[in-house]
Design a protein around this nucleic acid. Structure first.
Lengths: 115, 115
DNA sequence: TTAGTATATTCGCATATACTGATGAGATAT
DNA sequence: ATATCTCATCAGTATATGCGAATATACTAA
């Protein structure tokens, strides 16, 4: 016989937790739960390569955990609470990283007017 | 400079979610959140090898998600809510697998008296 | 003791993942 | 047009993971 029907639900949930199972992605989620950020800001705060940040964001996109909004060259990412309601409680249980949001003004070539 | 101090918290949380990021382990957790089970019961319900079940349980142990209790040859696993309080809400959001617990009586060499 | 059962661990393989560096695509500015 | 900037994707590499097979360990019963 085939797998019971809830097997696909378990698979989908496991995929989401797999995406949550990386400290850099948890860090990104925690940051963008406070305010939307563009990739270069995330790259700068986490101190990782642009390529690496972009790949982490692709994983977060793949399970619909983030929303994106383009403005000129910049693509702003923010948390998508709707797709996975539990994400709010999960992020609340993480250590507070909001202090890192203060220094993003000092980035070179930082977008001043975000409209 | 070194990593900020919350980095280790993010790492620990990521490790936990990494363990949750597998459908068989979610299945096991969901089962033992209803009642304690020994490894051969888990093996039979999930229809996986004994070695595989034991390895999944080792991963669950490594992040303290399960409790174990030995009785004769059998080792009974149950959910450890204390180590990760969010686990209860996570398991509540999973599909119901309690129907699978009814058939464990029919297993060959099944322990009758669990004391 | 020996045999049988239950569980854990080790090894090897195939695949997945995290990362770096290079390239490509889209937008802005000159 | 070229140059620059932001971001995505691809290729390659090192490590991690999931699994079966074989083995080791722990307990029970005769």
């Amino acid at each position: 016989m085939m797998h019971p029907q809830y097997r696909s639900d378990l698979l989908r949930m496991a995929d989401t937790f797999k995406v949550l199972g990386d400290p850099n992605r948890l860090h990104i989620l925690s940051l963008i739960s406070h305010q939307e950020l563009c990739v270069c800001e995330i790259t700068s705060i986490l101190n990782i390569s642009q390529s690496n940040a972009s790949q982490h964001l692709a994983r977060l996109r793949s399970v619909d955990l983030v929303k994106e909004r383009r403005n000129a060259q910049w693509i702003y990412y923010s948390l998508n609470q709707e797709a996975f309601p539990l994400i709010t409680e999960i992020l609340d249980s993480l250590p507070d990283v909001s202090g890192e949001l203060k220094k993003i003004e000092d980035l070179p070539n930082h977008p001043k007017c975000k409209i």
